[in-house]
Amino acid sequence: MLELSDVSVRFDGTLAVDDVDLAVADGDVLAVLGPSGCGKSTLLRAVAGLEPLATGRVAWDGADLAGTPTHRRGFALMFQDGQLFDHLTVARNVGYARRLRGDDRRAVRARVDELLELVGLGGYADRLPRTLSGGERQRVALARSLAAEPRLLLLDEPLSALDAELRVRLAADLRRILTAARTTALLVTHDQDEAFSVADRVALMRAGRVVQEGPVADVWRAPVDAEARDFLGHRRSYDGADAARILAAAGLPAEPDVTIVVRPAGGGRDSGAGTVS
């Protein structure tokens, strides 16, 4: 399992990640959710060994990774824009990590075909990345990361470059693929739907700090403060004058210090229906 303790990352004097403690158990998917600029991508890069830590430690199964360079960590990082190697075919991109290990050519090809089927791109093996659509590129990037058989999969906003419809579909696929292989994964995103539909646990991050961490359902049900509540929904909590106006409109008696929370129905996905408490 992955453990972060007191992790801080500094850029030219400013603190991008501030004293973060997190853990991801084997087979779990943890989403770090926060607005852009909150330091979540930096945190992910620090886990990958791409940013030096100012303080703290990143450990795997209790072993400190401080002296382990990126390529020996066994953490595959999937970038927001895929970062496919444009000069290599889809098959060579996906099989890259296996070829590095010197696997037998035929075995690599078989595994590549299997993974391409898994991500729904069977028959794309000989295409070049430039000829693919955005969604297809992200699927190839996912297959390439999975082919490395990482002990931890790092996902940096894997779906946010895609349009809304595709995002919902790919999120479900991603969840299916990750749970099927019992992959341990750390996902960062600013999109709450992405976080809640893919992850088991969620950590809310703000200004470099983790403000709340827990199972998806718990975080959804009980946000730690008003800011977290507002972030989780597009302003779904109201208090003060706004709350009074809503109560009046609903024909309910006015109450002091009330907070009205609008909650969508069903696992956190927007379905239009919902409850007011």
Partner: peptide
């Protein structure tokens, strides 16, 4: 060259020289 290309190679297990061979040399 986007530095993240080399980082992607590294995260897939390529050492520094191998990452250069994959990314820089090709271009």
């Amino acid at each position: 060259i986007d530095d993240r290309q080399r980082q992607a190679a590294a995260s897939l297990g390529a050492g520094p020289l191998r990452a250069i061979a994959t990314v820089d040399l090709a271009v």
